[in-house]
Design a protein around this nucleic acid. Structure first.
Lengths: 134, 134
DNA sequence: TCTAATGCAGTATTTCAATGCGCAAATATC
DNA sequence: GATATTTGCGCATTGAAATACTGCATTAGA
């Protein structure tokens, strides 16, 4: 199991949960979400807290409680969700984490950067609306 | 510091070290390599052990010891080095690590996979020869 | 042959994300 | 009101990767 490109578990379950919430008419609670996604209930709960804080979902407690979108699905991009959970994507310069690469040109020739931008564009171009049919 | 695409420290310093070794006429030892790259001597030593085992470099001990390429630079791709250190790159399907994504289509629409392949192609297309001038 | 420089191998430590847990606060339902 | 259900939140635990340490084996050169 060796991945070059890897979304964290957190952002991944966050995006999946948001799609489920978008598709639902009624509140969805953490347990149901976690089960549907097949993820850890505890971990998902943590992730949801961030999304509530950043205003993408409204939560309500008590029986029949859970989460609802607080904006319409076309107003929330996957990038919004991702960055709410992970923080802003940075353009990933040198794979060695230096300001100044010890080499003249970067050995990776910008390919890492290019891949990052590609994924970022995808996340930005797609809203929950697009994902609702998935 | 949030990177979507991230080479591990290990593979990164491994590739950089190999370029330095390729450029050198004489043996390069771990301390010099580590200093030039600006990486941890200990970590680099570990990485070099793998590259020795997989036959990309010959090591010699004692004073004036260190590492030399055991093939010519055009015979070693960056992918060889990467996979020697990390193991084979797998095509990264669903970001949730499941055989069966709980959704109909993958929400990431293959963009993760595409980015992985792109990076892999770059690593495969470039040998140490190409990198020697960097 | 002796000494110092060096890689080797195994183990220990650190770090950080992922995960778990318990209790407090809120709130439908009866 | 009482009760059951649910999120909020802080702290603890776990697990895996990264990194460090240490004693040993090898070898060039004086």
């Amino acid at each position: 199991m060796n991945k070059v490109v890897q979304l964290s578990e957190a952002s991944s379950i966050g995006i999946h949960a948001m799609v489920l919430i978008a598709r639902s008419e009624v509140h969805m609670n953490v347990s149901d979400l976690a089960e549907k996604i097949g993820a850890s209930r505890n971990h998902l709960a943590k992730v949801m807290q961030r999304l509530v804080k950043d205003g993408f979902v409204k939560s309500s407690r008590g029986p029949t409680g859970g989460f609802l979108l607080s904006k319409s699905p076309e107003e929330i991009t996957l990038l919004d969700i991702y960055e709410s959970i992970e923080g802003p994507i940075e353009p990933a310069a040198c794979p060695l984490d230096r300001q100044v690469c010890p080499f003249g040109k970067c050995l990776m020739g910008g390919v890492v950067n290019k891949a990052t931008i590609e994924i970022r564009e995808y996340l930005k171009a797609n809203t929950l609306k697009e994902m609702m049919g998935y």
